[in-house]
Amino acid sequence: MDLDLIMRTTQFLGEAALMTLALTAGSLVLGILAAGAIVVARLSRWTAVRALVAAYVSVMRGTPLLVQLFVLYFGGPQIGLTLSPFAAGVVTFGLNIAAYMSEGLRGAILSVDKGQTEAARTLGFGRLATMFHFILPQCAALMIRSLGVNAVILIKGTALISTIGVVDLTYSAQRIMTSSSQPFEVFGIAAAYYMLIVFGLTRIMRLAERRFALPDEARA
């Protein structure tokens, strides 16, 4: 055990962890917004819109994330879309996780009994008002839980950004490893940072979930 190396690596990777955190935050915000849009589109009354979005979700879920990143980052300039590596990461990871998140959100909406919609529509509420006043309040906690699961997957997926030269946790760990030749410690510390980020995010999501859960006396 080289204590000095561990100290230096911890400090050095701490900065890289901030990059991973920023990448995660950006992708998460984009992902949640895009997931919301996808769900709205999937509930649309136009068949063409529903089909298009369903196809999008299949492609995003059916191809490797790394390939998606390369398509955007290396292929983008070919069609006049030049992005910085960081931006390419945010867009790819955000749009990719959105596909998974949208499935979770849709599942949560579908988990609410159909009778709830019928009761609301019978009172005279429109589609949007029904969603807003009756369906979402009943499935918000479930939505947050599934967003949390996907957010954890997202955090780990951001490691792929190291392949296009962004100085994130994984990239920095690789760099230190080549100079120190003590990969066990170096990657162990990187892993610990990932764990820390996952842990923090999980806690936040759990708080949010509790905030949106129905009161105890409202549960059967």
Binding site: G115, A120, L214
Partner: peptide, 13 residues
């Protein structure tokens, strides 16, 4: 025209 359902369909929240 209001309807009452067999399964009540009260809003649980």
């Amino acid at each position: 025209m209001q309807m009452v359902f067999q399964q009540f369909n009260l809003f649980p929240h």
